[in-house]
Nucleic acid binder design. Structure first.
Lengths: 372, 372
DNA sequence: GTGAAAGCGCTAACAA
DNA sequence: TTGTTAGCGCTTTCAC
C-alpha cells in the first residue's frame, strides 16, 4: 500500500534518483523539479523507507536504549533525557525492557543491533565479556557500569554510599545494614565496597543482606531480617527497596526513623511522597541519559564509514571517555538520631532538605586511550 | 565488521541461498550442510540482518509501542505485558515516548512505521483523523481510545467513574469535583460524561476543573481551587493527580479523608504506598497490553502479503474488534463520610479494600465489520 | 538438496 | 541538473 520512490518518480515524470535526491540532498535538485516531486510525494503519501535507506547509508538514525526494568521509576527520567537529547540531533530512541534478565538483554541487543546506529546499555546485568562482544557488533555506551575500553557513564554511588554512612555515623548509629541489590549489578559492588570502608573507618559494623530484587517487594521482604539483625540504620540499594522496607517495618510495629533509620539511593520522585519522606542519595539520571547520547553520537559521522564499508568497530575510535557523575545526599525524614539518645519527638519538617554536595552536576571526566 | 551472509557462504563453501535457507527454512537443507553452515556462522559471529530480511519478506518481527509518558507509572505494567506477549510470538517491542505531545506522536509513528509490523497507539493525543491516516500506512491497534473502524482496546473508565461517584454519594457527599486530564484524552471525555450523569442522577453537583496535565504537579496545583470550590469529594483523572492533590491539600491544612475525600484512577502501585492509601478505580493495564498485542498479531500471516505485494491495508482485514475491559473500584483510605456526619476518628485500616466488581478481567467484546 | 538470478526500496558514484 | 548503473544483505522463485 505505501507508495515507493518509484511511484513518486512515475507520477512526477522524473527518475527515481531525482526523487531520492529531493529527500536526501534537496540542494542538488532544481527548485522547480523539487516542488513538483514534493507535491507528488505528498499526494501519494510517500515516505522514504528508512530501513532500505539504512541498508545503503549504514545509518538508521535510531539509537537503542536497553533498560533493565521500565517499571523502576529510576529509569524514566533517564529515558526522557536520552530521548530529548537524541531528538535534538535528529535521532529516534527505541527503548527495550529486559526484565532484569541477562538472557533477554543479550537477545534484545542483538535484535536491535542492526536497526540502530548504536546502543545505550543501561545498568546491564550481563557479563563484561558479553558486553565487549556486543560492542564489536554495534557501537555501545554503557551506563551505570564500568567496562574498560568502552565508553561509560557512571554515577558515583560509592561516594554517595560513603556520604550516607557518614551521615548515619554522625547520628550515632553503629550497627548498620546494607540491603544489596541484584546480582551482577556494578552499582551494587560499588556501594558495598564504599559503605564497608566508611563503616569500618567509623568503627561501625555493617551487615550485608542480599542479593535481592531491587524492588519494593524485595525491600519489604527484608523487614524481619532487619529487625532480627538488631541494626539501627539501613542503607538500601535503591529507593524502591527502602520504601518497601519502611512498609515492612511498619507492619512489624517498627517506626522509621524513631526505631530504625533508612536511607535509599536514586531520589526518585516517589521518595518525596512517602511518609516519612525518604533520605536518599540523589543520582543524576537525566544528566546520565544526555551524556550517554552525546558520547554515542560524538563521532556521529564516523559511526559507519561511507560506501561499501562496514560498521566501524569501537576500537576504531581514537579515545574512549569514561565519565563519572556526582551524586549527593539529600537528607529528609527517614533518618534520625540513634534511639535513646536525643528525642525531639519526631524529626522536624524543618528548613527543607540539606544538600551536602553541590547541586547541578559538575562531572569528572576521565579520558582513556584505546589500542586500535 | 559484522559478517554477512556472503562471508558465511564463502567460509562454508556453499551458495548464499543455502546459507539463507539454513536460517529461514532449515528443513530444506541437508543436515550435514546445515551443521557446517551453522558452525561457520557461529564462528564468524554471523547474524542475519533483520532490516535486509524485512525488505523482502515485509516482516520485521518488531512491533512499535507509542506511549504518551513513560514516567507515568500507569504505563510500565502495560508495556511489560505487551512485551511479554510479543515475546511469546517471537516479536520484539520498541517503545517510544511522545511526552504527551501530539506532534512528536505523529513523527514517531511515521519513523517507526517502516521498521515494525504494526504499531500500538497507547492513549493517543492526536486527532482521530490523523490516527486513521496513520493506520493506512501501518497496521494499528489503538489503546485507551475508540476510533471507529480501527481495532481498539479500551478500559471502561466510564463505568469506573460512575462507581466512584456512587461510592461518594453513598458516603453522603453532594458537592463533587472532577479533576480533568489532558486535552485530547478519550478517557477524559468518558469520565466526564459518566461522572456527570452519575452525579446528576444522585442529585449532586459536579464541578469540572481542567484540563490539566495528568501529573502529580497537575494535581497539587489544584488544591486551592478545590478548597475554594467548597466541594467535599473529588474524583481525579488519575492516581498521580489524586496523590498530588492530597499533597497540596495537606499543605493547606486540609485533611484527607476527614475534610475532603479523594478518588483516583488507575490503581498504580504507588497508590498503596501513600498515606492515606488511595481509593481508586483499578484499570486492567496488563490485560490491555496483552490484548492489544494479540489483536495486532491476530492476522499474523496476513499482515503483509507474500512476494511482490505491499503491506496490507487495515481495511483488508475482515473484521475489526473493539474490546472493552472492565474496571473496578478499590476502596482504601482516601474516602470517608461527609464531614460532620459520623466521625469514627479516622477510617479504620479495616478488613482490607473492598472490591466492587469481579477481580480478574471478564471482557466485553464488540465485534464490528469494516467495509473493505 | 543446491545454485543461479531477480529483486525488495533506496542511495551513491559516474556520466551525460 | 538529471539519468544510468551498481549494489546494500537478504529471500525466493526457478532450474538443475
Amino acid at each position: 500500500m505505501p507508495a515507493t520512490i518509484r511511484d513518486v518518480a512515475r507520477a512526477s515524470g522524473v527518475h527515481i534518483s531525482t526523487v531520492s535526491r529531493t529527500f536526501s540532498a534537496p540542494h542538488l535538485v532544481n527548485p522547480e523539479t523539487r516542488v513538483r516531486v514534493l507535491a507528488c510525494a505528498e499526494e501519494l503519501g510517500y515516505r522514504p523507507n528508512r530501513a532500505a535507506r539504512a541498508l545503503i547509508t549504514g545509518r538508521t538514525h535510531n539509537i537503542g536504549l536497553i533498560i533493565a526494568d521500565i517499571a523502576n521509576p529510576f529509569f524514566p527520567p533517564l529515558i526522557k533525557a536520552a530521548e530529548g537529547q537524541a531528538r535534538h540531533r535528529d535521532y529516534h530512541v527505541f527503548v527495550a525492557d529486559t526484565n532484569e534478565d541477562p538472557a533477554a538483554e543479550e537477545e534484545l541487543v542483538h535484535a536491535l543491533a542492526k536497526q540502530v546506529d548504536g546502543v545505550l546499555l543501561c545498568s546491564p546485568r550481563m557479563s563484561n565479556a558479553l558486553i565487549e562482544q556486543v560492542s564489536r557488533e554495534v557501537p555501545v555506551v554503557v551506563i551505570n557500569r564500568q567496562v574498560t575500553g568502552l565508553p561509560c557513564v557512571m554515577m558515583d554511588v560509592g561516594q554517595g554510599a560513603r556520604a550516607a554512612i557518614e551521615h548515619l555515623l554522625g547520628l550515632g548509629h553503629r550497627q548498620l545494614a546494607l540491603l544489596g541489590g541484584p546480582r551482577g549489578s556494578w552499582t551494587n559492588q560499588q556501594m558495598r565496597r564504599a559503605a564497608g570502608a566508611a563503616a569500618r573507618s567509623g568503627g561501625a559494623e555493617l551487615t550485608v543482606l542480599g542479593p535481592n530484587p531491587p524492588t519494593e517487594t524485595g525491600g519489604s521482604a527484608l523487614a524481619t531480617q532487619v529487625r532480627d539483625s538488631g541494626v539501627t540504620a539501613v542503607l538500601a540499594y535503591n529507593d524502591l527497596m527502602a520504601i518497601g522496607l519502611i512498609e515492612g517495618l511498619d507492619h512489624l510495629g517498627i517506626r522509621v526513623p524513631q526505631d530504625v533509620s533508612v536511607v535509599g539511593v536514586d531520589d526518585i520522585a516517589l521518595s518525596r511522597l512517602t511518609r516519612p519522606k525518604l533520605t536518599t542519595v540523589a543520582t543524576p539520571t537525566a544528566a546520565a541519559g544526555r551524556t550517554a547520547v552525546d558520547m554515542l553520537l560524538q563521532h556521529d559521522s564516523e559511526l559507519r564509514p561511507r560506501g561499501g564499508g562496514r560498521a566501524a568497530a569501537v576500537g576504531d575510535r581514537r579515545t574512549t571517555a569514561q565519565v563519572m557523575l556526582q551524586t549527593e545526599l539529600v537528607i529528609r525524614d527517614s533518618t534520625g538520631p540513634l534511639p535513646g539518645r536525643s528525642r525531639p519527638g519526631s524529626v522536624p519538617d524543618g528548613p527543607g532538605p540539606h544538600r551536602l554536595a553541590d547541586p547541578g552536576s559538575p562531572t569528572v571526566t576521565t579520558g582513556g586511550v584505546v589500542a586500535s
